[in-house]
């Protein structure tokens, strides 16, 4: 396999630029995937392999997690041309011509950075195996609905299983991102208090003593 820079974009969730023209399959079982902004040639994969299998086992992109292979847990979430998908339910060969963005390709700035930062600040990461999928799903949700209310958040994230956290801190992280980005409705004193606290840069990641 080879890796060549494709479009060089900071692959934000908003983008839907296709690099499809450059990624035409040249017949047989060899095709190319645009993964996180790099054109990757896939050789030797079986034609029935899922995108998840090709990402992890053929291309070594292990940032995408494999927990059910049935589309039931969201651990393998990616963006396909900017749309949220469970990569275990997509044939890799069908992703030829689409832009695949994993958690690793969401970029180090902007919304995805805020989502990751708040997952850490709010304690939404325990074993962390669900986290890459959640970060993709939350980034997608807040791209489309920056001010999603609680019911919309719960509905949008119901395809992502977390076995460790019980979801409380994940919900808190989503709300904290919204608060930080000024998307929450005004007049919510508790949330604006949180904004202040989380706005601080803390060298030792040292939160307050009164976390409950």
């Amino acid at each position: 396999m080879t890796a060549v820079p494709a479009d060089g974009l900071d692959a934000g969730a908003e983008g839907a630029d296709r690099a499809g023209g450059a990624a035409g399959a040249d017949g047989g079982e060899s095709y190319r995937l645009n993964v996180d902004g790099f054109l990757r040639t896939v050789n030797g994969a079986s034609i029935g392999d899922s995108l998840l299998t090709v990402l992890r086992d053929t291309l070594g992109v292990t940032a995408v997690k494999d927990a059910c292979e049935q589309g039931r847990c969201g651990a393998c979430s990616v963006l396909l041309d900017g749309r949220l998908a469970a990569s275990c339910t997509v044939l890799a060969a069908d992703a030829d011509g689409t832009r695949v963005v994993t958690v690793a390709g969401l970029g180090g700035a902007g919304l995805a950075r805020a989502v990751r930062a708040m997952f850490l600040a709010e304690g939404a990461v325990q074993c962390g195996f669900c986290t890459p999928g959640f970060v993709v799903a939350v980034t997608d949700l807040l791209t489309r609905h920056p001010d999603a209310d609680e019911e919309e958040i719960r509905e949008a994230l119901a395809g992502n299983i977390c076995r460790c956290t019980g979801y409380g801190r994940i919900l808190a992280a989503v709300r904290a991102v919204q608060a930080e980005r000024g998307a929450l409705r005004s007049g919510d004193a508790h949330s604006s208090g949180e904004t202040q606290r989380h706005g601080e840069t803390q060298r030792h990641s040292d939160g307050g003593p009164d976390g409950w």
Binding site: A104, F119, G128, P132, V135, H204, S205, G207
Partner: peptide, 19 residues
């Protein structure tokens, strides 16, 4: 006594952490 963050958290959130 403090809500110190996980040292492995950044790697887990970015997908770099190796399971």
């Amino acid at each position: 006594g403090r809500s110190v963050r996980r040292p492995d958290g950044p790697d887990k959130a970015s997908g770099v952490f190796r399971y």
